[in-house]
């Protein structure tokens, strides 16, 4: 809540003020019980929102609970306190309005790439023929038209991510949740994937929650970068609007002086806060 209040005035006026709130986390806290006894507060009460059409990255050191927050937003994990609102409705159970691109491989290995994409429509009642046709279209859009009949193990890591992206986007979810989706890829592939993602996103501007530990990637892609402190008791320690012009090239934007200024400003805060968090942890 505190973050939302702080962010509101500094919001760039690029988007209309009327844009609806897609995701609102209200005092969400997550605790895990470890070995039946000790309670471990992974995430301290956290509040923030993602507006419709907004691309928000969540950045923080490994193990800070970024993915946990994403799982809460997806409805895969129930918060210990607080609640999640999706387009103004309180979330109960799975978040049906969102698509989730996982960090690990989540394709069904026994289905071909095409079937993996088509199944996302089929489970909602689309006839198989139509679903396959749509899936073929999406395979083309992620640049894998010639790889439809491949199985997951016959694709490279980057190709598997593309299939995963097609699988998520074919359902046209209004919210896109991404958990370090390009984490295991090499630097070049990451930038290519970043551009692919930006291109697809620009078509209908979904609300995006993008978790990453790579600050540069976050700035290159997002409208806003949210910084989280290291866990346990992780919390939001910074919220920075990124007012770089769109459309962007995820690789070339990194050479922009404005990008450097933003990177420096955010990194200075991040470093300071992270150092503080470590000191607190050490005490």
């Amino acid at each position: 809540m505190e973050m939302a209040a702080r962010r509101e005035p500094s919001r760039p006026s690029a988007e209309p003020e009327s844009a609806a709130t897609a995701v609102r986390l209200d005092g969400v806290k997550v605790s895990f019980v470890i070995r039946g006894a000790a309670v471990f507060d992974a995430v301290a009460p956290t509040s923030f929102e993602v507006r419709e059409g907004e691309f928000v990255s969540i950045v923080g050191p490994t193990g800070c609970g970024k993915s946990t927050l994403l799982n809460v937003t997806a409805g895969l994990l129930k918060p210990s306190a607080g609640h999640v609102e999706i387009f103004g409705e309180r979330l109960a159970g799975l978040n049906r309005k969102s698509g989730y691109l996982f960090q690990q491989d989540a394709l069904m290995p026994w289905k071909t790439a095409l079937d993996n994409v088509a199944i996302a429509l089929e489970v909602h009642g689309t006839p198989r023929k139509e679903a396959l046709e749509a899936a073929r279209g999406w395979m083309g859009r992620v640049g894998l038209a010639r790889f439809c009949e491949r199985y997951a193990h016959e694709l490279s890591g980057g190709q598997r991510k593309r299939v995963g992206l097609a699988q998520v986007l074919i359902r046209r979810p209004r919210i896109l949740l991404m958990d370090e989706p390009f984490g295991p890829l090499d630097a070049q592939t990451r930038q290519i994937m970043g551009n692919l993602l930006l291109g697809l996103w620009a078509e209908d501007r979904k609300a995006v929650m993008f978790v990453t530990h790579d600050l540069e990637e976050a700035i290159a892609l997002s409208d806003r970068v949210v910084i989280m402190s290291a866990g346990p008791d992780a919390r939001v320690i910074g919220d920075h609007p990124i007012d770089l012009a769109r459309p962007r090239d995820a690789a070339e934007i990194r050479l922009d002086p404005k990008f450097h200024a933003l990177h420096k400003r955010i990194w200075d805060q991040l470093r300071e806060e992270v150092a503080k968090t470590y000191e607190e942890g050490a005490r």
Binding site: G99, F102, M108, V123, H124
Partner: peptide, 27 residues
């Protein structure tokens, strides 16, 4: 069954029956 594949299938909107058919059964 890989928990990630399972979560992914759930997020896709699969019902328990569909999970059985497309995930548990082939596995």
């Amino acid at each position: 069954v890989s928990p990630v594949v399972l979560s992914n299938a759930r997020m896709m909107g699969m019902t328990e029956r569909q999970l059985f058919r497309h995930v548990y059964w082939p596995s």
